[in-house]
Design a protein around this nucleic acid. Structure first.
Length: 380
DNA sequence: AATCCACAGGAAGATTAGGATA
DNA sequence: TATCCTAATCTTCCTGTGGATT
């Protein structure tokens, strides 16, 4: 139980419930994704943290019905290639000494064991980051094992609390993991409401929430992409504001203040950005006005970016560099950037604005270096 | 099944900015 | 002021990717 938890007495019952690290018992409106997670037992996968963790909680139950074995490995304990493979091989009744055998012998024993059983197995690697730093070949081998098996299939579910660890991953591993990445459609207002209500019951003390608070949070968040994390953030910050104000209840007013605070910090982020990212952001804005669409390919954005630089008489960056800036803005949650394949038409990042246009447009135009964009021709 | 688009994103090296030091 | 050092930025060159199209 956390320190934070102990000090809750007024508004909050358990603040941690609202944080993005919290694993809910229930995951409403994601049954389809959960179903497909259990479905694709022939490939490696990764997904949004909460969903994967939830699945690992529940999968054991389902595993019995879909005839596959579930093997849980805590990488904090089994942190080398040898230990992981030896552990797995032992599951298939292979006798492997604790140490002494060469890695590749252990590996081929594991393959033999798998193929004689010929089943689907799901390997859950908890604290996966520990394994990656200590032994980078293990993950790669495990993921690629399918191509060397005849009958059996192996899936890997990686769990990690370390948000930055995917940067450490071997590119080969990353790309294999990404193969069956599941997409998560945005929640609609009703679904968001369900989610917030469910969490609020646990997070707040009884009757510490005004009835209007959740609908308001949903209304404010739904304007911006139906992102559950944003709605939960808003609720959390509202609660904190109410708490600091020594109020007994979280009211609509607190939500409004919280919303203003969030907006203010977004404005601040945009205001203090260097020139080039500002031009990039302006490019997205201009594209939205010109084409009357919401999302654009990185090629479109780069072309617009060049146009704007030209217009401003500013030196332009390479496409490669711009791709990095796009990722940075994505990280800051100012834009959404998702890699998609358009088949014959190549791969792109689909880029869309993630903050209210009317909020950042004035900020950008206020920059005297961008003044010239004011009168840029909007052609149909 | 093979091709091929339009990029993503890694590697390595160059350039620049911002200091520190002498 | 000139010189050096380091980190951040940015470029060039590159290989890899998924799936619509052939």
């Amino acid at each position: 139980m956390s320190e934070e938890h102990l000090s809750e007495g007024g508004i909050f019952a358990d603040k941690a419930v609202l944080r993005s690290t919290y694993i809910p018992e229930n995951l409403p409106h994601r049954m389809e994704q959960i179903a497909s997670l259990t479905d694709i037992l022939s490939t490696a996968l990764k997904g949004k943290a909460a969903t994967v963790k939830y699945v690992s909680k529940q999968l054991e139950e389902m595993a019995r019905t879909c005839n596959c074995a579930l093997i849980y490995i805590n990488c904090e304990l089994f942190y080398t290639q040898y230990r992981v493979f030896a552990y797995l091989a032992r599951v298939f009744n292979k006798h492997i000494p604790v140490f002494g055998w060469p890695n590749d012998v252990v590996f081929s024993e594991l393959k033999k064991g798998l193929d004689t059983e010929g089943r689907h197995i799901v390997v859950i690697l908890d604290e996966m980051d520990k394994l990656v730093t200590k032994e980078d070949e293990a993950l790669y081998k495990l993921i690629r094992i399918n191509s060397e098996l005849n009958k059996a299939r192996v899936s890997v579910i990686g769990i990690s609390n370390d948000l930055t660890f995917s940067e450490l991953l071997d590119q080969r591993v990353k790309s294999s993991l990404g193969v069956k990445e599941i997409t998560f459609p945005a929640y609609n207002a009703d679904q968001l409401k369900d989610i917030l209500t469910e969490r609020a019951v646990m997070a707040f003390n009884y009757s510490a929430l005004d009835d209007a608070v959740i609908p308001l949070c949903v209304a404010l968040a739904a304007k911006r992409n139906g992102d559950a994390k944003r709605a939960l953030d808003l609720l959390l910050i509202s609660g904190e504001i109410a708490e600091r104000a020594k109020s007994k209840k979280v009211s609509e007013e607190h939500v409004r203040i919280a919303s203003e605070k969030i907006k203010a910090s977004m404005v601040e982020v945009v205001k203090t950005m260097p020139l080039q990212p500002k031009i990039l952001l302006s490019s997205v804005l201009t594209l939205m006005r010109e084409k009357n669409e919401r999302s654009f390919s990185s090629g479109e954005v780069y072309n617009m970016y060049r146009r704007l630089c030209d217009h401003l008489g500013v030196g332009m960056l390479s496409q490669r560099r711009l791709a990095d800036l796009i990722s940075e803005l994505d990280f800051l949650e100012l834009i959404n950037a998702v890699v998609v394949s358009r088949g014959r038409h190549g791969m792109t990042k689909e880029i869309s604005l993630n903050v209210p246009e009317e909020l950042i447009q004035p900020v950008l135009f206020a920059d005297h270096e961008l003044e010239a964009l004011f009168n840029i021709r909007v052609k149909a």
